[in-house]
Simulated assay, not measured.
Amino acid sequence: MIPVVVVRHVPAHDTSSALSANRVVRFFGFAAGSALAATVLDALSPGETLAPHAFTMAALVGAGLALASAVCAVITLPRRSPDPGAGVSVQPGPSLDTA
């Protein structure tokens, strides 16, 4: 889904760079999320066995971070101004067909 958005909104000569940057950021996020989950599991599990509540807490931490990220994304999105041409009807002109 995101690669389609990137290709549509990036100039053709910058597409490969933008897609590469997207891939790097995604893998960084995967690695950071995995490390955070492992840290939460380790911190909440006594000894060498994993406690069942640690998995629930790791999921809740991940869900909280996802929600915080979504809120930040919505807040920082640029606001679109209303389309000045919206609501204007265009009448068809004369046909250019000569046949």
Rank of each mutant, 00 (worst) to 15 (best):
G64Y: 06
R79K: 12
D14Q: 13
G33S: 07
A86F: 11
I2M: 04
A12N: 13
V10H: 06
R23T: 10
A51P: 06
I2V: 10
L44C: 08
S69E: 06
R79H: 14
H53P: 04
V88A: 09
S69F: 04
G62Y: 11
S45T: 10
S95R: 11
S69N: 08
P3G: 04
L36V: 12
M1G: 11
G47P: 09
R26C: 04
L36P: 12
V25G: 08
G64S: 15
D97H: 09
P84D: 01
V40C: 00
A66M: 15
S17F: 09
T15S: 03
S45M: 10
A37P: 07
L96W: 08
L65V: 15
A35W: 00
S45D: 03
V4W: 07
A51K: 14
A63G: 14
L41T: 15
L96I: 07
R23S: 11
A31G: 10
L65N: 02
T98D: 09
A59L: 15
P3V: 01
A58S: 12
V25F: 02
V61E: 09
S34E: 07
L19Q: 05
A86M: 11
P11H: 01
A59N: 09
D42M: 13
G62L: 08
F30D: 09
T76F: 07
R26P: 04
R80W: 03
M57A: 14
G64L: 15
N22K: 04
V10K: 08
A68I: 14
D97V: 12
M1H: 07
A31H: 00
T49K: 13
I75E: 07
A70V: 13
S17T: 14
L60G: 02
G64C: 12
A63R: 13
D97Y: 14
T39Y: 08
A86D: 02
P11S: 02
A63P: 13
L65P: 07
N22Q: 10
S16D: 03
S81Y: 05
A37Y: 04
L77S: 15
P84G: 01
V10A: 05
A70P: 09
D42C: 09
V10P: 14
R80G: 11
A73T: 12
M1C: 09
V74N: 06
A59Y: 02
S69D: 07
Q91Y: 03
